[in-house]
């Protein structure tokens, strides 16, 4: 317990720094072409851009579910790209991730899914015997309340609706006590009303946990409404990086191409 908790102590390190990030799946055909940006504090950053432009690749490079080809990624002062083996695993604990398809373990209960966020901190035998740390269990219940699922804690994940599952996904990410949370299209499988609720929740997470939240999102209006900052990507490059209010139709036209859809 002690090592990882002291790690978290200094609040100023809760930032994400990306420098010249490049990724090519096929040699000579880069998907990400030298991205650089920094996120810190309680910023909520919406990453917009057409499908296939590398938004998901970008997020997955940050926690190395996908190996970046070049560049450097620093999370809370720790260089991620040079980590390997156990160091990488320990580094991943500091990066929460929320998925489009929720990625819950369907046959486990809500509480156990949330506790899965603690697996990086829990010895294998404890995970096996379901003897989670009491502090973790208390926190899991608190987080389940926090995301509004108090009465569902002991229900199985496959009995929940899409919006409820995404709430569990968010609670699981928070359970890691991360330095940054990344959400990959968290609202794309949800109806408009639920999408708004999930975005509100992510925004709230950013301020209660005092961490930056990165959100890949298709819906430009949702992004403008809930994010403090928008990063617009096209063809593997950052086209726009700034306040939502500064995002004009000309930028959108440059990001997505064409103009007819804007009217």
């Amino acid at each position: 317990m002690s090592v990882e908790n002291t790690f978290k102590g200094n609040g100023e390190t809760r930032s994400l720094l990306i420098e010249n990030l490049e990724k090519e799946y096929v040699k000579g055909k880069p998907v990400l072409k030298g991205l650089s940006f920094e996120v810190s504090g309680e910023e909520t950053v919406g990453i917009i851009g057409p499908s296939g432009t590398g938004k998901s690749t970008l997020l997955r490079c940050i926690n190395r579910l996908i190996e970046p080809s070049k560049g450097s990624i620093t999370v809370a002062g720790q260089e991620i790209t040079s980590c390997s083996g156990k160091d990488l695993r320990l580094a991943r604990r500091r990066i929460g991730m929320v998925f489009q398809e929720y990625n819950l373990v369907e046959r486990l209960t809500v509480i156990e899914n949330v506790l899965c966020g603690r697996l990086g901190y829990t010895p294998v035998w404890r995970a096996w015997l379901r003897k989670f740390d009491q502090a973790d269990i208390n926190r899991a219940f608190k987080l389940i309340d926090h995301v509004g699922l108090g009465e569902f804690a002991t229900q199985r994940a496959d009995s929940l609706s899409g919006g409820q599952r995404q709430r569990v996904g968010i609670a699981r990410a928070m359970m890691q006590s991360p330095d940054v949370i990344m959400a990959d299209e968290p609202t794309s499988s949800l109806d408009p009303k639920t999408s708004v609720e999930i975005m509100e929740l992510l925004k709230k997470v950013s301020s209660t946990e005092h961490i930056p939240v990165l959100i890949n999102i298709h819906d430009v209006n949702l992004a403008k409404r809930f994010c403090d900052r928008i990063i617009g990507m096209s063809k593997g490059k950052i086209i726009f990086d700034g306040n939502p209010s500064d995002l004009k139709d000309s930028h959108l036209s440059e990001i997505y191409g064409g103009e007819d859809w804007l009217s």
Binding site: R93, M97, G117, G120, A127
Partner: peptide, 17 residues
């Protein structure tokens, strides 16, 4: 993928995933 992203050790991924 979610458990891997949370930094779970391989055996825990086998047990819980």
């Amino acid at each position: 993928e979610a458990l891997r992203a949370a930094g779970a050790p391989t055996v825990s991924i086998l047990l819980k995933g």
